[in-house]
């Protein structure tokens, strides 16, 4: 089960999405490329600014940390060299958080994949070029040493270790945040499972739900979302073009009628 994504809820931002999964709802907006302050300007690439606003209150040190982590992760997959000396500003507001109280670090780690996915979808919505499709997922290791993908609130609260990772379509690891009491083998197991989950979310190109080893893969939610977005964009474009054409026809007919009455000023 992938998260619910609503496209373009903000009319004034260049791109925006509302992404909600069982734990969090995040509204993300991107503006860019826009003018950059002299101090932040980079001569050969676009500067990326990430702002994270908590569900209540103003951001503190924890939000600053998330911003720096997301900023460097996004920088590695965005084609920043295409917009030198500009700024790409991503702002994310958390609007829903888990109903039970989680320990600070669990709360933050659980939030990380949601923020990452929200950022990616809103960048796509804003038409900003990315080097690769990528997605993030969350997993925990429960006290009885089971790996749980997309855990529920209660499972997170009692977990032994928590893992947030992001992978690109070709399996490169973009982001890793693991915390808790873990050992080498368990970490490798979690990394493999998250990699599979992320790649499954991106989905194979031009194939239906793939079966591997007889296990049904989770639905490729990101692929579906992006396809839907592309379809609606094309539909919108067709509509705009159609409107444009009818306007052209109208204006040309108006011009024709003008022609009949008086000589065209242009000629």
């Amino acid at each position: 089960m992938g998260p619910d994504v609503v496209n373009h809820p903000l009319s004034r931002a260049d791109g925006s999405t509302v992404l909600s999964n069982g734990l969090y709802t995040v509204i993300a907006g991107v503006n860019g490329p826009i003018e950059v302050q002299r101090r932040d300007e980079l001569p050969e690439e676009a500067a990326i600014e990430v702002n994270v606003r908590p569900a209540s209150g103003v951001g503190g040190i924890c939000e600053r940390w998330m911003e720096t982590v997301l900023q460097s992760a996004l920088k590695s997959i965005m084609l920043v060299h295409m917009f030198p000396r500009t700024l790409i500003q991503i702002t994310m507001q958390i609007t829903k958080e888990p109903s039970i109280k989680l320990r600070r670090s669990l709360y933050d780690f659980a939030l990380m994949p949601t923020l990452f996915n929200a950022a990616i979808t809103c960048l796509v919505d804003g038409g900003l070029p990315l080097a690769t499709t990528s997605t993030a997922a969350l997993a925990i290791i429960s006290p009885d040493d089971q790996v749980v993908l997309d855990p529920q609130e209660k499972e997170i609260a009692s977990c032994k270790s928590i893992h947030a990772m992001a992978f690109s379509a070709n399996g490169d690891q973009i982001l890793t945040q693991s915390s808790g009491d873990l050992n080498h083998e368990d970490w490798g197991k979690v990394a493999d499972m998250l990699k599979q989950a992320c790649i499954a979310a991106i989905g194979p190109a031009g194939e239906d739900t793939a079966m591997s080893n007889g296990v049904v893969q989770p639905e490729p939610w990101l692929r579906q979302h992006l396809e839907d977005e592309a379809k609606s964009a094309v539909r919108g474009k067709v509509k705009i073009e159609a409107q444009g054409r009818s306007r052209e026809i109208r204006s040309s007919s108006a011009a024709n009628s003008k022609d009949e009455n008086q000589p065209d000023s242009a000629t």
């Binding site: 982590v69 490169d172 973009i174 693991s178 873990l182 970490w187």
Partner: peptide, 10 residues
């Protein structure tokens, strides 16, 4: 292992 944190790059 208490923490593994990696960011940026691939």
């Amino acid at each position: 292992i208490l923490k593994i944190e990696k960011t940026g790059g691939t």
